[in-house]
Design a protein around this nucleic acid. Structure first.
Lengths: 250, 250
DNA sequence: AAAAATTATTTGTATATACAACAAGAAGAT
DNA sequence: ATCTTCTTGTTGTATATACAAATAATTTTT
């Protein structure tokens, strides 16, 4: 006997509630900051139980589309464009999240005049002033990476006054400007002597260099990160179609 | 009179269940791929109801720490594997490693003459022949990413004869040529209609585009990958000074 | 009028229950 | 032996209920 085909194309109910809200947001009916129906109202309009509605709204909140306040209501999240799409994870968090003790040393933090080659890379006129920082990040006493940054001063006028042993450069910059694009180049190099010194490398071992250009509108910051030999990192990783978008960058 | 401070350090129960699992993972008691207690067992060991346990495990799954299969069990998600200096991880392995069924569709595989802009990006003379492929990768029936590649023919003369439903393009190319440098550019775009069609996107949701240039000596291949909305991936991640270097790239 | 207390609304968490869907193994039929 | 069917255990979803906690509006008191 043939088994009856259920043919249940229907998505789960909580997913239909999520789609319903997303449609209202994407179509512009619900705009950022506006309050949406309460759970109780959605229970009647969608014909779902409150727990199901609650799950839908909770997941949309975790995905950064909604913002909820107990006792107040549910609102369409104001999407700082990059906040929903980009989460740039700091090296400090990375180390602490695996139980290590993080510290860093600021070896240089000053204004310089851009060399012609740097100016070209940053779309500047030669000898324009730029901010330059060199910071070594450590896990315990072991140097992990060396960050060498050049930043256009107009983006962060008070850059030189910051205490980057307390707030990472990334965190500081991300609090100031919305990133619109990132470019990465990865290469294997023989580090120059000054890099070997700061990373406490003995011989002439090859190490990884990751060069990052960050666009903030048309303006540009560049960072070169040098990793101690034997370091590994992952470009690419897990991704799932249901989870919120995030990009972690060291 | 000062109001009495409630001092309620207790986290919610579902959070304590999450912490419990995370501790077992981080301490190494539970290793990637191992099966964890079933919901029913956690109900007894943690003293929570099944719905609460279910919520904890569901959120950990959404966060990429666990992998669940209906009827089978819950497993610690396998994160970064491998060694070698460069390990370019294929999307197929990525999907299979978390228990999904991988498939792909070759929508285009032909020789074309490079447009002036493409030729400039690839360091070619305009209208030089290049190989062009468009492939959609799916997990189950859900399109996950769309890969659009241009390749210099002299690198892979038999490119057009391959069956890329059996071997991924990445695997094929890596078997031929040693990569010497990679460049990534990540951006958020509103996908063009033909991309929306292939990724089965309804509205005009923004999706991530990852553009990769690959140097093989001086020669160049380019790939643009478009991710379905809501996808997340990680650029950067865990790195340890003791483990062999590896770079996974999708 | 201002402050305090109360009430109503809304979200946050937790439980018990139920059934569906899937996977793997066991038992039975061929 | 091999295939089929059944059973069992697992996760996935949905509901009704309950109480806690935060916020806003209202009422009462001073």
């Amino acid at each position: 006997m043939q088994k009856q085909e259920p043919v249940l194309f229907n998505k789960p109910l909580y997913q239909r509630v999520k789609d319903h809200i997303l449609n209202l947001i994407n179509s512009g009916t619900l705009r950022p900051g506006m309050q949406i129906e309460s759970e109780a109202e959605l229970v009647t309009t969608m014909g779902a139980s409150r727990m199901t509605v609650n799950r839908a709204l909770r997941e949309l909140t975790a995905e950064g589309r909604l913002s909820r306040r107990q006792g107040c209501g549910t609102f369409v999240a104001t999407r700082k464009p990059q906040a929903a799409l980009f989460t740039i994870q700091s090296i400090a968090d990375e180390i602490r999240s695996r139980g290590g003790s993080y510290s860093c040393t600021v070896h240089l933090l000053q204004e310089e005049k851009a060399s012609p080659s740097l100016a070209a890379a940053m779309d500047l006129a030669p000898y324009t002033p730029v901010f330059h920082s060199i910071i070594v990040h450590k896990e315990g006493n072991v140097p992990i990476q060396l960050g060498c940054r050049y930043i256009r001063p107009e983006i962060a006028p008070h850059f030189l006054e910051q205490d980057f042993t307390q707030v990472t450069v990334s965190d500081y910059l991300l609090g100031i400007a919305p990133v619109t694009a990132i470019e990465h180049i990865v290469e294997a190099i023989i580090p120059e002597p000054w890099i070997r010194d700061l990373l406490e490398i003995n011989g002439s071992e090859p190490c990884l260099a990751l060069h990052r250009k960050t666009w903030v509108g048309q303006v540009i910051a560049t960072k070169s990160t040098f990793y101690s030999p034997g370091s590994r990192f992952t470009l690419g990783g897990i991704f799932t179609p249901t989870s919120p978008g995030s990009i972690g960058v060291m």
